[in-house]
Amino acid sequence: MVRAGLTQERVTGAAAELADEIGLERVTMAQVARRLGVKDASLYSHVRNLEDLRGRIALLAADEKTIRIAEATAGLSGRDALVAFAGAWREYAHLHPGRYQATQTPVPIDPDLAASAPGPRRAVELTYGMLRGYGLDEPDLTDAVRLLRSTFHGFVALEAAGGFAHARSPQDSWVRALDALHTLLENWPPREDGDS
């Protein structure tokens, strides 16, 4: 019998909260059950297993992060859009480290579930839309998306791990990194002949 009030959304939400508190890799079905005040077996009426639950956390986080980025960048373009986009990304990673980790960790996700989740698809649209403002098209768009993701993720991952021990403020370095990215995007190098 399914416990009244227990839903996939509640199970996923409880797991996401735990991931933020203790780290995604340390979340177990037993801990989620304790958080919700139910027996472990009750969870399996709502999620198949831990892998399924992690996939649901990833999709929840992708939705949340995308909404935050969309709100931050609405009506902006160029450098302003880039700074707002990057700031929303970094802020989400700081506020929700476990959820953020779920968005960066490959987990098998049920294709039907993934198809019904707007977050990942909307994230791609937002990123490509911002970069088109710099006059980029394919394959440069894909290369620029990968550059931004690598830069943003690398910075927040190092920051979270305490990897910036220098006396200079990470915030000052973040601002300069965004200045450099903006300059690069405005002056994107031409492709060599035969580069596709």
Score class of each variant (00 low, 15 high):
144 A>M: 02
87 G>V: 07
92 Y>G: 01
107 V>T: 05
75 G>K: 07
62 A>Q: 14
120 P>V: 08
108 P>R: 11
117 A>R: 07
145 V>W: 10
19 A>W: 04
21 E>C: 05
101 Q>R: 12
32 V>L: 05
49 N>Q: 03
36 L>M: 13
37 G>H: 14
8 Q>A: 14
59 L>G: 09
98 G>V: 14
161 A>H: 01
60 L>I: 15
90 R>H: 12
3 R>E: 00
70 A>M: 14
151 T>R: 05
24 L>S: 07
122 R>C: 04
140 D>N: 05
184 L>A: 06
91 E>D: 10
45 S>R: 15
83 V>Y: 03
169 S>W: 04
186 E>F: 00
150 S>Y: 00
158 L>D: 06
159 E>Y: 11
51 E>A: 15
73 T>Y: 05
63 D>C: 13
183 T>D: 10
149 R>V: 03
110 D>N: 09
131 L>T: 04
154 G>M: 00
23 G>T: 10
58 A>G: 13
58 A>P: 09
49 N>P: 04
79 R>K: 15
60 L>N: 10
181 L>C: 02
146 R>I: 14
96 H>L: 06
18 L>T: 12
21 E>R: 15
89 W>V: 11
38 V>P: 02
179 D>K: 09
157 A>Y: 03
31 Q>G: 11
74 A>C: 03
125 E>H: 08
126 L>T: 04
74 A>Q: 13
129 G>M: 03
3 R>F: 00
169 S>I: 09
127 T>V: 00
152 F>L: 14
120 P>K: 04
181 L>S: 06
28 T>V: 13
61 A>V: 13
150 S>F: 01
60 L>G: 11
108 P>K: 11
172 D>Y: 00
173 S>D: 09
86 A>E: 01
5 G>P: 13
143 D>Q: 00
55 G>E: 05
101 Q>H: 06
124 V>N: 06
170 P>D: 00
95 L>I: 11
140 D>L: 01
13 G>C: 08
15 A>M: 14
93 A>Y: 00
48 R>S: 07
144 A>K: 06
45 S>A: 14
186 E>I: 04
125 E>L: 14
122 R>T: 13
70 A>Q: 15
17 E>G: 09
63 D>L: 07
72 A>N: 03
148 L>W: 07
185 L>H: 01
61 A>G: 15
174 W>S: 01
57 I>W: 12
108 P>E: 11
25 E>M: 09
84 A>D: 01
101 Q>M: 01
157 A>L: 08
42 S>F: 08
183 T>P: 01
57 I>G: 11
139 P>A: 06
109 I>T: 08
52 D>Y: 12
145 V>S: 10
192 E>V: 15
127 T>L: 01
39 K>I: 09
155 F>L: 05
166 H>N: 08
165 A>Y: 02
89 W>M: 03
15 A>L: 06
19 A>I: 10
126 L>G: 02
83 V>N: 01
22 I>L: 12
89 W>G: 04
191 R>F: 05
30 A>M: 11
5 G>R: 15
56 R>A: 14
181 L>E: 07
14 A>T: 11
